[in-house]
Design a protein around this nucleic acid. Structure first.
Length: 571
RNA sequence: UGGCCCGUAGUUCAACUGGUUAGAACGUCGGACUUUGACUCCGGAUGUUGCAGGUUCGAGUCCUGCCGGGCCAGCCA
């Protein structure tokens, strides 16, 4: 693995260093670990929500490291809690995973292992390492103790093996109500690690499970199901986020108690992804949806895979980002700008160019032959010779961007102003001779002339212009709805210092405009991303009717904008 | 309050496991180029490696103590 830092060959970007502590561990295990060179990972989502960019990091890691060693990655749905889980999430997760570009070696469910888990639970009971507790949830919680106070043994902790076995079978058979009894591991109520104070293995839930139906009324907890599922599948490296660090001793304890061999799975934790100006917790995302701050899980402002997809973020850019940010044990927050830079890099190479005007200002060309329409040829993508050219209609009445004109421009402003000449991209040079203003002094129309000698954009006399601006011919313009997005949260770290994250929700995170666009925009398919010249990348809505002219675009990300920086600096 | 994890440019990560002047990306600033103020190219700035001691010829790396942040007391995952 001699990857150069930030190697961008073939459009694939490697991580900062090309390696990380997890890859080093796996390499070492592959060389002389207990797995005989085998590497197997798993991605274990709970089917109760949609995948987001944080999951993408985990997916890239799990699938990435396995692939690097010719290993396998299992997609395992962690369906141990029928309360919130549902089939529809399974479908969505599989779809998102495929869109991200990953194919699992196998698709399984923790519920596939319910029989085995149950047999193992009985085994632990017989070994005297698990017991049925009759205490209710509140009492169990009280008796668990605190960080500085030891726990109190349950009065049912020393039941006989026979009684435990009998009670557990009756739990399984549905003789008791929810919350009446649980199965607990018998470890140490005085352990300094709270996870080891006799954790619950099974609880009673009289609920219909979307896969096992009504055949079970007891369901394994995460701690009991997860590590054992890993073991059943032959996972070698169980990679999870930092908050499970304190669960690792328990993860290992179960395997040890069951007498698993040295080739049992090992858990390694890494930092979850955080991104500025957004939230990534399931709870917060749900809140955004439920409170109607966004249209749904697939709203283009959501950091969900579906949201990013609608927004026009390419899977490749997401993968490159995940590969680049690396893996560490430090809980940090990545700047969303980094993700955006990968999105731009990708689209710059591949996106077709089109012209659209978001805030139209009318331009009348006084020396243009009345009623005549000309056709200009424009390059589809200067970064890609194979993308070809297209025809753009030109006429005596045009729209340009309101921002591209100033009545009284500062010295740094290069664009159009009274008496100034600029180039219309792929068109002609035009000069502004006069300005029509409305009652409040606002500019409503520019009176210009064009230079017929500058067709194609070059002046035969060699004179230069300081700016090239985009434009659209009025008569042939398409009206399209364009969604402009700003940060979902104004604060870089919503909820920092204990604040309510929702307090920094940006009320103007979406701005809808009706843009004037050139006719060739009709060539763009739903889901496809184009560059509106000088403005940014825009994705045609996925649900737009492919048989009609485009009606809706989402701004994926703006272009880098030096002029905006200059303005910002000068206040 | 106890235990565990973690502190390296603004941000995220490197630093060949104790060895020369601590690097890169994104961001930022300046310049070149330009029919996108984009892209590309060149260059600059930003570090008391959290702090204080210690070991050593030599410490970002090892040790001790502080400080700061995160996680843990669900029958959630």
């Amino acid at each position: 693995m001699e990857a150069e830092p930030n190697d961008n060959e073939g459009g694939r970007v490697t991580s900062n260093s090309g390696t990380d502590f997890i890859r080093e561990l796996i390499q070492s295990d592959a060389d002389h670990g207990p797995y005989g060179g085998r590497v197997q990972t798993r991605f274990p989502p709970e089917p109760n929500g949609f995948l987001h960019i944080g999951h993408a990091k985990s997916i890239c890691l799990n699938f990435g490291v396995a692939a690097e060693h010719g290993g396998r990655t299992v997609l395992r749905f962690d369906d141990t809690n029928p309360e919130t889980e549902d089939e529809r999430y399974v479908a969505a997760i599989r779809e998102d995973l495929a869109w991200l570009g990953f194919e699992p070696s196998e698709v399984v469910y923790a519920s596939d292992y319910f029989d085995q888990l149950h047999r193992w639970a009985v085994q632990l009971i017989e070994q005297g390492l698990a017991y049925v507790d009759d205490q209710d949830a509140e009492t169990i919680s009280e008796n668990r103790g605190g960080f500085t106070t030891p726990g109190v043994d349950s009065p049912w902790r020393d039941r006989s093996v026979d009684e435990n076995r009998d009670l557990f079978e009756r739990m399984t058979a549905g003789e008791f109500g929810e919350g009446q009894r649980v199965l607990r591991a018998k470890i140490d109520m005085n352990h300094e690690n709270m996870q080891m104070r006799d954790p619950v293995m099974y609880r009673i839930r009289n609920q219909h499970h979307f896969r096992t139906g009504d055949s079970w009324v007891i369901y394994p907890t995460y701690d009991w199901a997860h590590g054992q599922s890993d073991a059943i599948e032959g996972t070698t490296h169980s990679l999870c986020t930092l908050e499970f660090d304190s669960h690792r001793p328990l993860y290992d304890w179960f395997h040890g108690a069951l007498g698993l061999g040295d080739d049992r799975p090992r858990q390694t934790e890494f930092a979850r992804l955080n991104l500025t100006h957004t939230v990534l917790s399931k709870r917060r995302l749900l809140q955004l949806v439920d409170d109607g701050h966004v249209d749904g899980w697939d709203d283009a402002r959501m950091p969900t895979v579906r949201g990013l997809r609608r927004r026009g973020y390419p899977a490749q850019a997401i993968r490159d980002f995940c590969g680049h940010i690396g893996i560490a044990r430090v809980n940090g927050t990545h700047e969303i700008e980094l993700l955006e830079s990968f999105v731009r890099r990708q689209h710059n190479a591949t996106a077709l160019r089109r012209m659209a005007v978001l805030d139209p200002l009318e331009v009348v060309i006084t020396n243009w032959p009345d009623g005549q329409t000309d056709t200009r040829e424009a390059i589809n993508n200067p970064e890609d010779d194979t993308a070809g050219v297209r025809e753009v209609p030109f006429s005596g009445r045009l729209f340009i961007e309101r921002d591209d004109f100033m009545l009284d421009p500062p010295s740094k402003f290069f664009r159009l102003a009274p008496g100034r000449e600029v180039r219309l991209r792929a068109g002609y040079f035009i000069t502004c001779n006069d300005v029509e203003t409305g009652p409040d002094g606002e500019v409503i129309r520019l009176i210009c002339t064009y230079d017929p000698e500058t067709a194609g954009g070059q002046a035969p006399d060699g004179r230069k212009v300081k700016a090239t601006i985009h434009w659209v011919a009025a008569e042939t313009a398409l009206d399209v709805k364009v969604e402009l997005y700003e940060r979902l949260f104004t604060e870089a770290l919503p909820g920092a210092d204990g604040a309510d994250p929702m307090a920094s929700l940006n009320p103007d995170s979406r701005l809808t405009r009706t843009a004037k666009a050139e006719p060739a925009l009709a060539d763009i398919a739903p889901g496809e991303v184009v560059q509106f010249e000088r403005l940014g990348y825009f994705a045609r809505d996925l649900d737009d009717d492919p048989n009609t002219s485009p009606t809706r675009f989402h701004r994926t990300v703006g272009l880098r904008d030096e002029w905006a920086n200059i303005q910002k600096r000068q206040g």
